[in-house]
Design a protein around this nucleic acid. Structure first.
Length: 582
DNA sequence: AATTTCGAAA
DNA sequence: ATAGGTTCGAAATT
């Protein structure tokens, strides 16, 4: 106990951290390795000790005693007994299962015979085992290393994987002194730290994991820094082709690698180099084998295509990858889980801004890619000036009587649509555009429904980009917007991940996907590039008052609220946009 | 042989 | 739980 300490440990395994306490940084650094940040408003941050976070800690070599000592030294009040028990229980559990490599092969070991008996009976686990040795050892099918880890983790028994990696072919790579454009290259402190932490975790300690940093913090640079440290052939996986090409451009711009060494492997171009950038999609492609009718029926019955060979085996026969980088790892498609499970013998680095998935499959990502190695709250980056300050507002718009009636009579399933496309939102957009008319303002309007966007686009005479817009047209509009010839631009969901979309200073969201925290964060990211004059960015979310949409908006905002963004509530009922009474 | 269009997948 | 976007290979064009 330490009366000056910055933290309060609660019996529900949550830890409150006082941001303005003189010992804040010390306390944060002390608890960071074994907690997850769940809320970070301005004064009091909430961290949580979870199942997964204790596993993370144990994997970096911390013991239960270390954890409790750290809590003890920073905590204002005595540590609740339940916390002590939980920490000891879970961390004790962690060391019990190990995946090691010995002369006979890959081996699952346990220090507890009863536990070993229990877990080896689990069907998914038993399938991965080849041969038992004694009462506490079993040899594992090396192809099922990942499946086994995932099954055990999902059952609450994470396994420590210290079986190491196959050595990748070496690759000479360094940062250039300056970029091709002649700009000096220096790593930001957190970029250096993140890559070094990952590198230093080495194969004896697991060596794979995820780095979590906000939009615009230069995750690509961290990927390159890791490549420079590891100096091995690297396979980079991205969610789409434009991200893949962005990686290639950045690598050529900032490292000593040349164009003949960095290649794209996608549906479009299939080239392989010492550094290859591929899409997630391409990994899911499996050869459709010519089969007799009988075999077809059989395959149909099995409902499993696990026996189909990977189409893209040259990707794995031409080079021995020593590192794989998973860009936007939170988007890892479920079919790529299996690929990742098969690649456990290669070191893996995951990069993401929001390690949240609406499908709740975070545990799978953690078990297959690795534990979180490093993260930094958005507000910390903001305070250091790497991202712009942003004002977030939720503007609640009323329905006119006619719409209210329509809404009331509609089927439940149609209500979201009706509320989301409320035409009074159009007036709000018009007013906001009139209000933000400085020459340097760029307003991006983003929405979910094509019909709604098309109507508004015609009404206000603002160009609209949807999935149907040809790439040439998109590029033309992006360029005009970037140059300032076009001050306002509308985009559909294409705006969520289009990395070539220029930055804006004001973003108006007129409708969004049901409860997607990730989408909200991504959209805010659009305005977070620091402004030259340091003025804040604005993010407006338009929501129909007293409708289902209002509930969804709350859910969407959760992630950013956790990151410390406070939404200002405003109202619009046909006249002016006014702040809600406090 | 190169480009465009289409439907399925996830 | 939607509607919408993307990717990919194959088919259809030029």
């Amino acid at each position: 106990m330490n009366p000056e300490g910055a933290i309060i440990v609660q019996s529900n395994l949550e830890i409150l951290v006082e941001v303005h306490n003189p010992h804040y940084i010390e306390a944060r650094d002390a608890i960071a390795p074994f907690t997850e940040l769940v809320k970070s408003p301005e004064h009091l941050h909430t961290y949580r000790i979870s199942h997964l976070s204790l596993w993370n800690a144990a994997s970096t070599g911390l013991t239960a005693e270390d954890v409790l000592a750290r809590l003890e030294s920073q905590s204002k009040y005595p540590i609740p007994e339940t916390v002590v028990t939980e920490v000891q229980d879970y961390m004790g559990r962690y060391g019990m299962l190990k995946l090691v490599k010995n002369d006979k092969g890959l081996c699952l070991e346990s220090t507890d015979v009863a536990l070993f008996k229990e877990i080896t009976k689990l069907p998914n686990v038993a399938d991965c085992l080849i041969e038992f040795e004694g009462e506490d050892k079993a040899y594992v099918d090396p192809n099922k290393r990942g499946i086994l880890k995932m099954s055990l983790t999902l059952n609450g028994f994470p396994v420590e994987d210290i079986a190491g990696y196959v050595a990748g072919d070496p690759l000479e790579v360094d940062f250039r002194k300056e970029t091709l454009a002649g700009k000096k290259l220096t790593l930001r402190s957190y970029q250096k730290e993140a890559s070094e932490i990952f590198y230093a975790s080495g194969s004896e300690k697991g060596g794979s994991g995820v780095i979590v940093l906000p939009c615009g913090s230069g995750k690509t640079v961290i990927g390159m820094a890791t490549m420079v440290l590891m100096k091995t052939r690297t396979l980079i996986l991205t969610p789409n082709i434009s991200a893949a090409r962005q990686w290639i451009r950045e690598i050529l711009d900032k490292t000593t690698l040349t164009a003949d060494q960095v290649k794209e492997y996608s549906g479009d171009v299939k080239e392989i180099g010492p550094v290859t950038v591929a899409t997630y999609q391409i990994l899911t492609q499996r050869k459709r084998l010519k089969k007799t009718d009988e075999e077809m029926e059989e395959a149909e019955e099995n409902k499993s295509d696990i026996n189909k060979p990977l189409v893209n085996f040259p990707l794995f026969s031409e080079h021995k990858w020593g590192l794989m980088i998973y860009d936007e790892v939170h988007l890892l498609p479920a079919p790529v889980f299996r690929f990742s499970a098969e690649m456990q013998a290669t070191r893996r680095l995951g990069l993401t801004a929001t390690l949240v998935r609406e499908d709740g499959k975070e545990t799978e990502v953690f078990s297959l890619i690795g534990p979180k190695k490093f993260d930094l709250p958005w507000k910390v980056l903001e305070s250091q000036g790497w991202i712009a300050t942003a004002d977030c507002s939720e503007i609640r718009v009323t329905m006119n009587p006619e719409l209210k009636m329509k809404y009331a009579l509609a089927q439940n399933r149609d209500k979201i649509n009706i509320a989301s496309t409320n035409e009074q939102k159009d007036d709000v957009v018009e007013k906001l555009i009139a209000q933000y008319n400085e020459p340097e303002d760029r307003i991006l309007i983003i929405g979910q429904y094509i019909e709604q966007l098309t109507k508004l686009s015609e009404k206000l005479n603002i160009p609209l980009i949807t999935g149907k817009t040809p790439n040439k047209e998109r590029d033309k509009l992006y360029l005009a917007f970037r140059r300032g010839e076009l001050r306002n631009l509308m985009v559909s969901k294409v705006g969520n991940f289009a990395i070539d979309l220029p930055d804006a200073s004001i973003l108006i969201q007129i409708s969004g996907t049901f409860g997607s925290r990730q989408e909200e964060a991504q959209r805010l990211g659009r305005v977070l590039r620091p402004k030259e004059d340091g003025r804040p960015a604005h993010f407006f979310s338009l929501v129909t008052k007293d409708s289902k949409e209002q509930e969804f908006a709350m859910n969407r905002q959760l992630f950013l609220t956790e990151q410390g963004y406070a939404y200002k509530i405003m109202h619009y009922s046909g006249e002016d946009i006014v702040a809600a009474r406090v």
